[in-house]
Structures are given as structure tokens and as C-alpha cells.
Design a protein around this nucleic acid. Structure first.
Length: 383
RNA sequence: GCGGAAUUGGUGAAGUGGUUAACACGCUAGAUUGUGGCUCUAGUAUUCGAGGGUUCAAUUCCCUCAUUCCGUC
């Protein structure tokens, strides 16, 4: 079946939306957060642990699975769900983001994008048609259009051309898309230019996708700009379809995204920072490697309902992390994913209770000591 | 007792008669937003066992002492 979005309630003072999304594998409430499992595994986390943390949709990546083990093998295994033992919905990213992270501008042509494989340097060509074909074989529940994600800042004329190309690519992908069990999303680009975001959103809407996503954020702009990019996009998207903000997972950004009408998020942040010894807490991100936790025999968060917090102390997790034991990254990943999933649960309640702004202000007061966080860059180390 | 060798940061160590004592690990912090990469970035010995001497200048040369290791009675 195609996914179906049901808008249940809009928060009274913001654009925040409470809804449900019906999939081949059940119905889930939105706003929701999707854990990222690039190579058909959420790094270090088993499917039953994902169920324990109340994960809904998870994300896998076309580009990576195309290279290894290959879409044909996954297909032989019976599709992604069977292959990885996940009995829940799966969204596959199109590979568009790899344009941004692996290809150089001159490798982007009308036909598609030339890559060099990050594994062995093999020259590859990914096109909108190829991306859809791979995603079809992977048999995910939601496929993404192949788009161009550009860096920031970008010149207006370049963005304009890029948006037009992304629209042509979206159309080409849709034209070859032929899978009744799978849904297809379009991706809004346009950097921080409202007219381009609007144009992109409106043109995509005319093509009638099953859902829409917002791409090209968190690529070096500051948070204030990122929130504008989101606004410029959701404002022009249909109300009866789901909106997915790609690659965003900083807790504050999730709250601000929901306030601007986003329903779904995904991000590698919770699992990546976990592997580097960090944990989200409501009082800000903490680094378990810090010496101050050496003899801290309390959990990461006192009232957290995750497996890590219910059973282990910071001192123990610090020991695991500093000795490079894999359980350390696993426990931190479990905690961080649960933290973001619980955050979306809280936000759903706020929408029901019409108090999301109050929740946001309170959250920020606890989370950020730095009041100038709005001007923080979303990428780069020039601070 | 005698003979020999050594002594550089938390560790393993490089090094030179003359600006900020290499490198690695560790340690201390920071970064991380549609995941190539448990990765990246930064800081971490005002000082070369102690004392004295030679020299314009000594961690580098000389002497004494201390400590450690090896050989020998």
C-alpha cells in the first residue's frame, strides 16, 4: 500500500501537527524520529532493541546498499525487511546526499552524478532512474527522489539551476516509479531563498508525491537560517501529506522543526555522537569521556526509561567508552535514540495540549547555557 | 668490593654546544545534523637525576654524588 497521512490536530499557536502515518507495517504517530540504519543496520542496535525504544520507521541508504551487498542480493534475500530482520517500515534515502558529500560540482550533469566509490574508487554513475530502480529492488516502504543537496552558502543562480534540475530529476524518477507497495517522496531544495523553496515546493506538489521532504538544511548555515529554510518550504506544501525534514536531529532543531510543521525527522547524530562517547540529556549534551564522570555512579539521566539508564551508571559507561568496549557505544546509542524518540512523544502531547512554545522555551533554558545558539553554524569547525 | 653502561614528560622514547626539546601512546578538552572512515581538531616537559665546573652559551663536554641495570669476586 501507499502510505497515508492523517492530520489529527494542529497546535493552536504554531504550525505543529499531530498525525498518524499508515504504512505496510502498521500505523505510527507523528511527529516521529527515524533512527538511521545506513547499511541495513542501525549501528550496533538490534531490531528488538529498536522495538524497545519505540522506533517506528527506520532509514536505510540506497547508495551504500547498492555498493554492498548490492540490491540484487537484498532482493534475493526477500527484500530489506527480511534481509535485516526488521518487521517495521523502512525509508530508503536516494543517494542524493552522497552528491553533496562525495561528488564534486563538475561531476553533476543533467543525466546524473558521477561518483568514485568510497570503498575502492570505482567510477559510478547514479541517475534518478537508477536510484528508483535500486530502491524498488530493496523493497523499502518509502523511496526518496534523487535530488541535489547543495552546500551553504550558494549563489542564487546556481541554486535556481539546481532546483530546476532537482525538479526534472524528481519527474524522471516518478515516471519510472512503478511499485504499488512503495511510496515516493519529493524533496524540496532552494537553499535559503524563499522564492526558490516556494517554487520547488509548489512544482513538486503538482506532481502529487506520496509525501514531501525538505532537504539541503544543516549544511553550514546557522540555526536561524535553517529554521527559515524549513518555514519557506512547509508554508507551500499540501496540508494533507506528510513532511519530512531530512538529516535533522539536534533536539532543539527537532522542536523548532515540529513548530514549523514537520512530521518526520531522521539523523545520524544520536548514533554518531554515541560512538564518540556523547549522550543527550535535558541539561545539554554530555561527554562521558570527561574525567568528572569517573566516579559518578548515577545514570546518564535519572528518570530516563531507556535500558542504559535503567541498568548502568555514568562511571561504568565511561569505563566502557574509554576502554573502547563496544557495549559503551551500544548503550549510548540506545539512550540517545530513546531520548529523541521520547522528545517526539513529548511534542505530540504538547500539540494535544496546545503548549508547545512553553515546552520549547523550557527545554532551551535547560539545554543551552549558550544563549546565542541561534547563530551557531550547523556544520564546520570555524568557531 | 671491583669493572662497565645508563639516567630526557604519565609511558615508550628521538635529539643537539646556541631561536618555541621530534615522534608515538596516554591524558585533558572540543567537534559531530538525508553516516566512507570509533573519525577529526586542539592542548598537554619554562625543561633534560642532583650539585659543581669549562664556555659568550650546556640537556648536550668535564668532575663529584645519587639511583638503576649488567658483569665479576
Amino acid at each position: 500500500m501507499k502510505i497515508k497521512y492523517n492530520l489529527l490536530k494542529k497546535e493552536n499557536s504554531t504550525e505543529a501537527r499531530l498525525g498518524t502515518i499508515e504504512t505496510n507495517y502498521g500505523t505510527y504517530e507523528t511527529p516521529m524520529f527515524m533512527p538511521v540504519g545506513t547499511r541495513a543496520t542501525v549501528k550496533g542496535i538490534s531490531p528488538n532493541e529498536l522495538l524497545d525504544m519505540h522506533a517506528g520507521i527506520i532509514l536505510a541508504n540506497t547508495y551504500h546498499l547498492w555498493l554492498r551487498p548490492g540490491e540484487d542480493l537484498v532482493s534475493k534475500a526477500g527484500g530489506l525487511h527480511q534481509f535485516m530482520g526488521w518487521n517495521g517500515p523502512i525509508l530508503t534515502d536516494s543517494g542524493g546526499f552522497q552528491v553533496f558529500s562525495l561528488a564534486r560540482p563538475k561531476d553533476i550533469t543533467e543525466e546524473g552524478v558521477k561518483f568514485k566509490s568510497h570503498i575502492d574508487g570505482t567510477k559510478l554513475l547514479l541517475t534518478p532512474e537508477k536510484s528508483i530502480e535500486i530502491q524498488n529492488k530493496l523493497d523499502s516502504d518509502i523511496a526518496m527522489s534523487f535530488d541535489e543537496c547543495i552546500s551553504y552558502p550558494a549563489e542564487y543562480n546556481y541554486v535556481k539551476d539546481s532546483v530546476e534540475r532537482t525538479l526534472r530529476w524528481a519527474k524522471r524518477g516518478k515516471d519510472v516509479f512503478n511499485n504499488e507497495r512503495q511510496s515516493l517522496f519529493g524533496i524540496v531544495q532552494g537553499s535559503d531563498y524563499e522564492d526558490l523553496r516556494r517554487h520547488c515546493a509548489e512544482e513538486l506538489s503538482k506532481m502529487n508525491f506520496d509525501g514531501y521532504s525538505i532537504g539541503g538544511t544543516s549544511v553550514g548555515e546557522n540555526k536561524e537560517t535553517m529554521y527559515k529554510m524549513v518555514e519557506y518550504s512547509t508554508k507551500y506544501l499540501p496540508k494533507d501529506k506528510v513532511r519530512y525534514l531530512m538529516g535533522v536531529g539536534d533536539p532543539i532543531d527537532i522542536i523548532e522543526g515540529v513548530i514549523r510543521g514537520i512530521d518526520i525527522f531522521d539523523c545520524v547524530l544520536p548514533t554518531r555522537i554515541a560512538r564518540h562517547g556523547n549522550a543527550f540529556t535535558k541539561y545539554g549534551k554530555i561527554n562521558l569521556k570527561n574525567a568528572k564522570f569517573k566516579e559518578d555512579f548515577t545514570p546518564i539521566e535519572e528518570n530516563c526509561d531507556c535500558y542504559a539508564c535503567k541498568n548502568f551508571t555514568k562511571a561504568y559507561i565511561r569505563h566502557l567508552v574509554t576502554t573502547d568496549e563496544m557495549l559503551g557505544s551500544r548503550l549510548l546509542s540506545i539512550h540517545n535514540l530513546r531520548f529523541l524518540i521520547r522528545l517526539t512523544e513529548d511534542l505530540r502531547n504538547c500539540i494535544k495540549n496546545d503548549n508547545i512554545l512553553e515546552y520549547r522555551d523550557n527545554f532551551i533554558k535547560n539545554y543551552y547555557k549558550d544563549t546565542d545558539y541561534l547563530h551557531k553554524k550547523t556544520k564546520g569547525q570555524d568557531d
